[in-house]
Amino acid sequence: MERLSQIDSPNTAIGANSSVAKQQGGDASAHHNATDKKQPYISHQSDSHGHIHYSDDENAMWQALLTRQAEQIPNRACPAYLEGLTKLNLPTTHIPQLHDIDEVLQATTGWQTAAVPALISFGKFFKLLANKSFPVATFIRRFEDMDYIEEPDIFHEIVGHCPLLTHPAFAAFNETYGKLGLSATKEERWFLARLYWFTIEFGLVGSQPKDRRIYGGGILSSPSETIYALDQTSYAQPETQIQPKPTQQPEHRAFDLLDVLRTPYRIDQIQPIYYVIDELDTLFDIVDSDIMGTVKQAMSLGLFEPTYPEKSH
Protein backbone atom coordinates (compact mmCIF):
# COMPACT_ATOMS: atom_id res chain seq x y z
CA MET A 1 0.00 0.00 0.00
CA GLU A 2 1.29 3.39 -0.91
CA ARG A 3 2.01 5.80 1.91
CA LEU A 4 3.88 8.69 0.36
CA SER A 5 3.20 10.07 -3.09
CA GLN A 6 6.23 12.34 -3.27
CA ILE A 7 8.58 14.01 -0.84
CA ASP A 8 9.73 17.00 -2.86
CA SER A 9 8.12 19.60 -0.59
CA PRO A 10 6.61 19.84 2.90
CA ASN A 11 3.17 20.36 1.36
CA THR A 12 3.20 17.23 -0.75
CA ALA A 13 0.11 15.06 -0.49
CA ILE A 14 0.66 11.67 1.09
CA GLY A 15 -1.32 8.56 1.84
CA ALA A 16 -3.42 9.05 4.94
CA ASN A 17 -1.67 6.51 7.10
CA SER A 18 1.98 7.33 6.94
CA SER A 19 5.03 8.73 5.27
CA VAL A 20 6.72 5.54 4.39
CA ALA A 21 6.16 4.29 0.91
CA LYS A 22 7.22 6.15 -2.18
CA GLN A 23 10.46 7.57 -0.95
CA GLN A 24 13.97 6.92 -2.17
CA GLY A 25 13.67 3.40 -0.79
CA GLY A 26 10.17 2.63 -2.09
CA ASP A 27 8.90 2.88 -5.65
CA ALA A 28 5.31 2.48 -6.80
CA SER A 29 5.68 3.59 -10.42
CA ALA A 30 5.05 0.09 -11.75
CA HIS A 31 1.63 0.19 -10.12
CA HIS A 32 0.51 3.52 -11.51
CA ASN A 33 -0.43 2.25 -14.96
CA ALA A 34 -2.79 -0.26 -13.39
CA THR A 35 -4.64 2.38 -11.39
CA ASP A 36 -4.55 5.55 -13.50
CA LYS A 37 -8.01 4.88 -14.98
CA LYS A 38 -9.70 3.88 -11.73
CA GLN A 39 -12.04 6.14 -9.86
CA PRO A 40 -10.15 7.80 -7.02
CA TYR A 41 -11.09 6.96 -3.47
CA ILE A 42 -12.73 9.76 -1.48
CA SER A 43 -13.08 9.77 2.29
CA HIS A 44 -16.54 10.15 3.81
CA GLN A 45 -17.42 13.20 5.87
CA SER A 46 -19.15 12.87 9.22
CA ASP A 47 -22.57 14.37 9.87
CA SER A 48 -23.35 17.02 12.50
CA HIS A 49 -23.33 14.31 15.18
CA GLY A 50 -19.90 12.99 14.18
CA HIS A 51 -21.38 9.88 12.56
CA ILE A 52 -20.10 8.58 9.21
CA HIS A 53 -22.61 6.82 6.99
CA TYR A 54 -21.43 3.89 4.87
CA SER A 55 -23.33 2.08 2.13
CA ASP A 56 -24.44 -1.55 2.28
CA ASP A 57 -21.71 -2.45 -0.22
CA GLU A 58 -19.05 -0.77 1.91
CA ASN A 59 -20.22 -2.56 5.04
CA ALA A 60 -20.26 -5.84 3.09
CA MET A 61 -16.65 -5.21 2.06
CA TRP A 62 -15.68 -4.70 5.71
CA GLN A 63 -17.42 -7.93 6.70
CA ALA A 64 -15.74 -9.91 3.91
CA LEU A 65 -12.27 -8.60 4.77
CA LEU A 66 -12.66 -9.08 8.51
CA THR A 67 -14.05 -12.59 8.10
CA ARG A 68 -11.16 -13.63 5.89
CA GLN A 69 -8.51 -12.17 8.17
CA ALA A 70 -10.12 -13.76 11.24
CA GLU A 71 -9.19 -17.12 9.73
CA GLN A 72 -5.55 -16.13 9.17
CA ILE A 73 -4.32 -14.14 12.15
CA PRO A 74 -4.92 -16.23 15.32
CA ASN A 75 -1.67 -18.23 14.99
CA ARG A 76 0.25 -15.57 13.07
CA ALA A 77 -0.34 -12.22 14.80
CA CYS A 78 1.59 -11.44 17.99
CA PRO A 79 -0.30 -11.86 21.30
CA ALA A 80 -0.37 -8.11 22.00
CA TYR A 81 -2.13 -7.53 18.67
CA LEU A 82 -4.74 -10.17 19.47
CA GLU A 83 -5.27 -8.65 22.91
CA GLY A 84 -5.73 -5.23 21.33
CA LEU A 85 -8.17 -6.66 18.81
CA THR A 86 -10.21 -8.08 21.68
CA LYS A 87 -10.20 -4.70 23.44
CA LEU A 88 -11.44 -2.93 20.31
CA ASN A 89 -14.27 -5.47 19.93
CA LEU A 90 -14.75 -4.52 16.29
CA PRO A 91 -18.19 -5.07 14.73
CA THR A 92 -18.23 -7.82 12.12
CA THR A 93 -21.15 -6.62 10.00
CA HIS A 94 -20.36 -2.93 9.53
CA ILE A 95 -17.53 -0.41 9.55
CA PRO A 96 -16.99 0.95 13.08
CA GLN A 97 -17.33 4.59 14.01
CA LEU A 98 -14.06 6.26 14.94
CA HIS A 99 -15.37 7.55 18.27
CA ASP A 100 -15.85 3.92 19.35
CA ILE A 101 -12.20 3.20 18.53
CA ASP A 102 -11.15 6.37 20.35
CA GLU A 103 -12.81 5.30 23.59
CA VAL A 104 -10.58 2.23 23.77
CA LEU A 105 -7.37 3.97 22.67
CA GLN A 106 -7.88 6.86 25.08
CA ALA A 107 -8.45 4.46 27.97
CA THR A 108 -5.31 2.42 27.24
CA THR A 109 -2.55 4.66 25.83
CA GLY A 110 -4.13 8.10 25.47
CA TRP A 111 -4.24 7.92 21.67
CA GLN A 112 -7.12 8.70 19.34
CA THR A 113 -7.89 8.52 15.65
CA ALA A 114 -8.18 11.48 13.29
CA ALA A 115 -10.45 11.28 10.25
CA VAL A 116 -8.56 12.58 7.23
CA PRO A 117 -8.96 12.75 3.45
CA ALA A 118 -7.41 10.02 1.32
CA LEU A 119 -4.34 12.25 0.98
CA ILE A 120 -2.85 14.56 3.60
CA SER A 121 0.24 16.73 3.66
CA PHE A 122 3.52 15.27 4.79
CA GLY A 123 3.77 17.74 7.68
CA LYS A 124 0.23 17.02 8.87
CA PHE A 125 0.97 13.31 9.10
CA PHE A 126 3.96 13.83 11.39
CA LYS A 127 2.11 16.44 13.45
CA LEU A 128 -0.79 14.05 14.06
CA LEU A 129 1.50 11.25 15.24
CA ALA A 130 3.49 13.64 17.43
CA ASN A 131 0.21 14.59 19.12
CA LYS A 132 -0.91 10.96 19.59
CA SER A 133 -3.52 11.09 16.83
CA PHE A 134 -3.53 8.31 14.25
CA PRO A 135 -4.75 9.42 10.79
CA VAL A 136 -7.51 7.29 9.29
CA ALA A 137 -8.90 7.79 5.80
CA THR A 138 -12.63 7.08 6.03
CA PHE A 139 -13.13 5.05 2.86
CA ILE A 140 -12.91 1.32 2.23
CA ARG A 141 -11.55 -0.49 -0.81
CA ARG A 142 -13.85 -1.71 -3.55
CA PHE A 143 -14.35 -5.41 -4.21
CA GLU A 144 -12.08 -5.30 -7.27
CA ASP A 145 -9.29 -4.09 -4.95
CA MET A 146 -9.96 -6.61 -2.20
CA ASP A 147 -6.52 -8.25 -2.32
CA TYR A 148 -4.46 -5.15 -2.98
CA ILE A 149 -5.07 -1.43 -2.69
CA GLU A 150 -2.50 1.27 -3.23
CA GLU A 151 -4.04 3.71 -0.77
CA PRO A 152 -4.34 2.83 2.94
CA ASP A 153 -8.06 2.45 3.62
CA ILE A 154 -10.01 2.27 6.87
CA PHE A 155 -9.61 -1.51 7.05
CA HIS A 156 -5.83 -1.19 6.89
CA GLU A 157 -5.78 1.55 9.52
CA ILE A 158 -8.27 0.08 12.00
CA VAL A 159 -7.52 -3.63 11.67
CA GLY A 160 -3.85 -3.30 10.75
CA HIS A 161 -2.70 -0.69 13.28
CA CYS A 162 -5.23 0.28 15.93
CA PRO A 163 -5.11 -2.97 17.96
CA LEU A 164 -1.43 -2.37 18.74
CA LEU A 165 -2.00 1.30 19.55
CA THR A 166 -3.32 -0.12 22.83
CA HIS A 167 0.24 -1.32 23.58
CA PRO A 168 2.52 1.24 25.30
CA ALA A 169 5.69 0.44 23.30
CA PHE A 170 3.94 0.56 19.92
CA ALA A 171 2.20 3.81 20.87
CA ALA A 172 5.42 5.42 22.13
CA PHE A 173 7.26 4.45 18.96
CA ASN A 174 4.64 6.14 16.76
CA GLU A 175 4.68 9.30 18.87
CA THR A 176 8.48 9.55 18.76
CA TYR A 177 8.50 8.86 15.03
CA GLY A 178 6.11 11.76 14.48
CA LYS A 179 8.27 14.14 16.51
CA LEU A 180 11.43 13.10 14.67
CA GLY A 181 9.74 13.49 11.30
CA LEU A 182 8.58 17.02 12.09
CA SER A 183 12.14 18.25 12.54
CA ALA A 184 13.84 16.06 9.91
CA THR A 185 15.13 17.28 6.57
CA LYS A 186 13.81 15.89 3.29
CA GLU A 187 16.73 13.49 2.91
CA GLU A 188 16.51 12.39 6.55
CA ARG A 189 12.83 11.59 6.00
CA TRP A 190 13.81 9.28 3.14
CA PHE A 191 15.80 7.21 5.61
CA LEU A 192 13.26 7.49 8.43
CA ALA A 193 10.69 6.06 6.01
CA ARG A 194 12.51 2.73 6.02
CA LEU A 195 12.36 2.54 9.79
CA TYR A 196 8.56 2.85 9.74
CA TRP A 197 8.27 0.46 6.81
CA PHE A 198 10.24 -2.37 8.42
CA THR A 199 8.62 -1.96 11.85
CA ILE A 200 5.10 -0.51 12.01
CA GLU A 201 4.15 -1.68 8.52
CA PHE A 202 6.11 -4.91 7.95
CA GLY A 203 7.69 -5.90 11.25
CA LEU A 204 7.97 -9.35 12.82
CA VAL A 205 8.56 -10.15 16.49
CA GLY A 206 10.10 -13.21 18.18
CA SER A 207 13.77 -14.19 18.34
CA GLN A 208 13.04 -17.90 17.86
CA PRO A 209 11.53 -18.92 14.50
CA LYS A 210 8.96 -21.20 16.14
CA ASP A 211 7.68 -18.29 18.24
CA ARG A 212 7.83 -15.64 15.51
CA ARG A 213 4.70 -13.57 14.95
CA ILE A 214 3.53 -10.53 12.97
CA TYR A 215 3.05 -7.02 14.35
CA GLY A 216 3.29 -4.96 11.14
CA GLY A 217 -0.04 -3.55 9.99
CA GLY A 218 0.84 -3.80 6.31
CA ILE A 219 1.05 -7.56 6.75
CA LEU A 220 -1.92 -7.97 9.08
CA SER A 221 -4.28 -6.17 6.70
CA SER A 222 -3.15 -8.29 3.73
CA PRO A 223 -4.55 -11.85 3.59
CA SER A 224 -1.84 -13.07 1.21
CA GLU A 225 1.11 -11.51 3.03
CA THR A 226 -0.18 -12.69 6.42
CA ILE A 227 0.43 -16.22 5.17
CA TYR A 228 3.62 -15.56 3.23
CA ALA A 229 5.54 -13.57 5.87
CA LEU A 230 5.89 -16.54 8.22
CA ASP A 231 6.01 -19.21 5.54
CA GLN A 232 9.18 -21.25 5.18
CA THR A 233 8.03 -23.07 2.05
CA SER A 234 7.64 -21.84 -1.51
CA TYR A 235 4.86 -19.31 -1.96
CA ALA A 236 1.91 -20.73 -3.88
CA GLN A 237 -0.25 -17.67 -4.61
CA PRO A 238 -0.40 -16.82 -8.33
CA GLU A 239 1.38 -13.74 -9.57
CA THR A 240 -0.81 -10.74 -10.40
CA GLN A 241 -0.11 -7.72 -12.54
CA ILE A 242 0.20 -5.41 -9.56
CA GLN A 243 1.68 -7.75 -6.98
CA PRO A 244 4.44 -9.95 -8.45
CA LYS A 245 4.96 -13.40 -7.02
CA PRO A 246 8.04 -13.69 -4.79
CA THR A 247 10.81 -15.76 -6.31
CA GLN A 248 11.97 -17.22 -2.99
CA GLN A 249 11.05 -17.69 0.64
CA PRO A 250 10.94 -14.56 2.79
CA GLU A 251 14.20 -13.63 4.47
CA HIS A 252 14.02 -12.87 8.19
CA ARG A 253 16.78 -10.60 9.50
CA ALA A 254 17.49 -9.65 13.10
CA PHE A 255 16.64 -5.99 13.64
CA ASP A 256 19.60 -3.66 13.36
CA LEU A 257 18.75 0.03 13.14
CA LEU A 258 21.57 0.96 10.76
CA ASP A 259 20.80 -1.97 8.45
CA VAL A 260 17.09 -1.14 8.42
CA LEU A 261 17.77 2.46 7.44
CA ARG A 262 19.93 1.29 4.52
CA THR A 263 17.54 -1.34 3.14
CA PRO A 264 15.57 -0.35 0.01
CA TYR A 265 12.09 -1.71 -0.63
CA ARG A 266 9.32 -1.78 -3.21
CA ILE A 267 5.71 -1.15 -2.29
CA ASP A 268 4.17 -2.96 -5.26
CA GLN A 269 5.12 -6.51 -4.30
CA ILE A 270 5.15 -8.99 -1.44
CA GLN A 271 8.18 -8.12 0.69
CA PRO A 272 11.31 -10.28 0.28
CA ILE A 273 12.83 -9.13 3.61
CA TYR A 274 11.36 -8.75 7.09
CA TYR A 275 13.24 -7.42 10.12
CA VAL A 276 12.59 -9.15 13.44
CA ILE A 277 12.63 -7.60 16.92
CA ASP A 278 12.93 -9.84 20.00
CA GLU A 279 9.79 -8.52 21.71
CA LEU A 280 7.44 -5.57 21.36
CA ASP A 281 9.16 -3.74 24.22
CA THR A 282 12.22 -3.60 21.94
CA LEU A 283 10.38 -0.65 20.37
CA PHE A 284 11.07 1.22 23.63
CA ASP A 285 14.79 0.51 23.15
CA ILE A 286 14.65 1.86 19.60
CA VAL A 287 12.89 5.01 20.83
CA ASP A 288 15.63 5.51 23.44
CA SER A 289 18.45 5.04 20.91
CA ASP A 290 20.10 7.77 18.84
CA ILE A 291 17.83 7.37 15.82
CA MET A 292 18.81 10.59 14.06
CA GLY A 293 22.50 9.98 14.67
CA THR A 294 22.09 6.59 13.03
CA VAL A 295 20.15 8.21 10.18
CA LYS A 296 23.13 10.47 9.49
CA GLN A 297 25.43 7.44 9.53
CA ALA A 298 23.15 5.62 7.07
CA MET A 299 23.11 8.68 4.81
CA SER A 300 26.90 8.68 4.67
CA LEU A 301 27.10 4.95 3.91
CA GLY A 302 24.26 4.81 1.38
CA LEU A 303 21.75 2.07 0.58
CA PHE A 304 22.36 -1.65 0.24
CA GLU A 305 21.90 -3.23 -3.16
CA PRO A 306 18.23 -4.19 -3.68
CA THR A 307 17.31 -7.85 -3.25
CA TYR A 308 14.22 -7.54 -5.43
CA PRO A 309 14.15 -7.69 -9.24
CA GLU A 310 13.98 -4.55 -11.32
CA LYS A 311 10.53 -3.57 -12.53
CA SER A 312 9.65 -4.22 -16.14
CA HIS A 313 8.27 -1.22 -18.03
Rank of each mutant, 00 (worst) to 15 (best):
I42F: 08
A28C: 03
S43V: 02
E150H: 13
A77L: 08
Q45F: 04
Y81C: 10
T108C: 13
L90Y: 11
T108L: 07
E71W: 09
K127P: 06
Q69R: 10
H94N: 12
I149D: 15
H31L: 13
V116A: 10
L129W: 07
L65M: 13
I73A: 01
S48G: 00
A64C: 11
F125M: 09
L4R: 11
T86M: 06
S48H: 01
F134V: 02
H53M: 08
N131L: 02
E151C: 13
I120W: 09
D102L: 08
L4N: 05
R3S: 05
D57M: 13
L4M: 11
G25V: 00
A80H: 13
S9P: 06
D145F: 14
A64V: 03
D56L: 05
A70P: 01
T35E: 06
D147K: 15
T12K: 11
P91D: 08
S133C: 14
T35N: 09
L129Y: 12
H32I: 02
E58P: 09
D8W: 10
M146Q: 15
Q63M: 07
Q63T: 06
D147A: 14
F139C: 14
S55G: 14
N33T: 10
H99W: 06
K127G: 15
Y41S: 11
V136D: 10
H31P: 05
L85P: 02
S133V: 04
